[in-house]
Design a protein around this nucleic acid. Structure first.
Lengths: 340, 340
DNA sequence: CCTATTTGAGTTATCGTTTACCCTAGTGGA
DNA sequence: TCCACTAGGGTAAACGATAACTCAAATAGG
């Protein structure tokens, strides 16, 4: 920068003014400096600006684990917005480890992050509080256990999703519908279940507790719980999988027992992650607008960083039913050859 | 920091020495300051350190697109290493857009990145050169079009993978093996094909050009090219899918035509991405040690940043055959009902 | 023609740390 | 007893950019 100033015969202040497009520079001078800058391969030093302006141009995204589905969809949305805004995205995975988490928190506190996107399904005491205390802007994505107005959150209409999924299966004629939930200590899991219950009740069907299995949103539980459902004296004709990863597990369990989808068993997922189209047959699922959620969250955070106040603190985006090929009318009679 | 120094009755220099564990401080003083630091919630200002030391603690990972498979596996490995080393990971997706790419390059040049991990399968003139020119340490992951010693690269034994996959199918008794390659302008695609050819030739089987289809490593091509293969007068009994995403496409195409895997058609993938276990049936594939590659790349980069010289500039990790359930002996006779 | 005002550009302090260098008081040896 | 040396600690100058403030010249108005 000094070099440019020297060559233009002005002070660094003037160059700085040009770079930041601030007033106080004459037209010809500005043009001359501008040209000089473009000719040289000068780039502003990030650290110095950061130090002086107090903004790092970095936004941290914290998540549990780098996985293919849910998180990735959101990251894509976030990426998209940040890329345009000039911010860079720092990704950090806690791996559910509290020490790692604290480590990250400590690193974040050194002013090196302008804002944080919290993509943690669980509520760890401390993170939100510390962030709030330190005045670091942040937005939480995904439903929280305790509705709060202390900080902005982005979610989707989970309950409605659960309701819609069940209603759809009912409309196909199913009467015995199994559900594999997520961990029931998470609101998002309970919301799905509540939607399921409501739909059944409205259809005048008694909820059979045997058809409700608790999973953990992981593929493995999809397999295990499907087996449990199949081993029931009166197995369901459809399975609502809680999320798409578990739906993949359901597929596998069914494949093992040679039960065809959707002829012998309907399967519906939740999330609509990228690979749900890739499954055979393509998965019918409840779509959460993941990218859109990521975009919204990023935009809210940017506004927060800019010092603007948010109109709404909690945004809920709509879930929707995506019909593909994994659901059909219920089979007649008991399961075929596979039920051994 | 000034605050700490004041409370300890020393200068900031001394505090700095303690913080950086440098000599020149007495035992009791050190202990006293240490305690004071721990008590307060002081965190070193990142920007200032960065400015002074010239190190940002950031490493950039550039990739084409945030996707579920290959890239994610590598990212996980990278994450793992960086998390321990105290570096933070910045993720940037170019979306194959040259403007976006240049934008990123410009941002990187401001000293805000200590090193770069290049996860681009294509060769864009300029990136590597610019990085080299600017003296920014970087490591390229995945095979390059032109083998180079100018910068370190991490790859895997692709050719051998292609050979092994084909050999395995041959050992099961297959004689007509279709292959859906990646874009043939990429070495990594050509290497798979070369391995395929070699295996066939060694088995004394003539290579039938009709069985070779060019894809783009995307699911859609898996579908399209499978259909082309099935429409052949003499369709193959096994398909080597080039990568796992395309294998998912193959699954779908086969599903559409009611062709069972592996009874009527064997399918083998390449990469062993996370979801290959989730497929029904679980995909037999050639494993690239993605996480390991990510780890290695990150470690090499860290060493580079630390100013150490690398023993080897190009590392190739071994691919291996992962046998699951998508391959079996060839069907007898023509394809069943689906061949319409 | 002179003063008030605007405009363009430079001075200098500052952001929070680190580090090269300097100083002082002990310590040990001759 | 005196000197050289060392250990412990402080001073002040960077690092590269920005911003508040100052100053000189040009312009406008009376």
């Amino acid at each position: 920068m000094v070099e440019i100033a020297r060559r233009a015969g002005v002070s660094t202040t003037t160059v700085s003014k040009v770079l930041n497009q601030r007033p106080g520079v004459g037209e010809k001078t500005r043009a001359r400096i501008q040209r000089l800058i473009e000719q040289s391969d000068y780039v502003q030093n990030h650290a110095a600006r950061h130090l002086r302006k107090g903004r790092s141009g970095l936004i941290d995204l914290v998540l549990m684990r780098l996985e293919g589905g849910y998180d990735l969809g959101i990251m894509q949305g976030v990426q998209e917005v940040l890329e345009q805004s000039g911010y860079r995205l720092v990704v950090f995975a806690t791996n559910e480890d509290e020490t790692t988490e604290r480590l990250w928190l400590r690193r974040i506190l050194d002013q090196s992050s302008d804002g944080v996107l919290l993509l943690l399904p669980y509520e760890r005491v401390g993170i939100a509080d510390t962030l709030l205390e330190q005045g670091i802007p942040f937005v939480a994505i995904g439903d929280r256990n305790e509705p709060t107005t202390a900080f902005p959150t982005i979610g989707s209409t989970i309950w409605l999703g659960g309701y819609t999924a069940t209603e759809y299966l009912l409309s196909l004629g199913h009467r015995r519908i199994g559900i594999i939930t997520g961990p029931l200590h998470l609101t998002t899991s309970r919301a799905r279940l509540a939607g399921y219950r409501e739909a059944l009740e409205q259809a005048g069907i008694a909820v059979d507790p045997a058809l409700i299995c608790e999973g953990s949103y992981l593929l493995g539980d999809g397999i295990r719980q499907t087996e449990a459902l199949l081993d029931l004296p009166d197995p369901p004709t459809a399975i609502f999988a809680g999320n798409d990863a578990q739906a993949a597990g359901v597929y596998q369990a069914l494949y093992r027992r040679h039960i065809r989808i959707p002829e012998e068993m309907s399967v519906i997922g939740f999330d609509d992650v990228t690979y749900s189209t890739h499954m055979a047959p393509p998965l019918t699922t409840i779509r959460q607008p993941l990218e859109e959620m990521g975009r919204m969250a990023a935009e809210m955070l940017l506004r927060l960083i800019a010092g603007q106040t948010l109109e709404t603190h909690h945004v809920e985006l709509a879930t929707s039913l995506v019909i593909r090929e994994s659901c059909g009318p219920p089979r007649q009679g008991p399961l075929g050859r596979g039920n051994s």
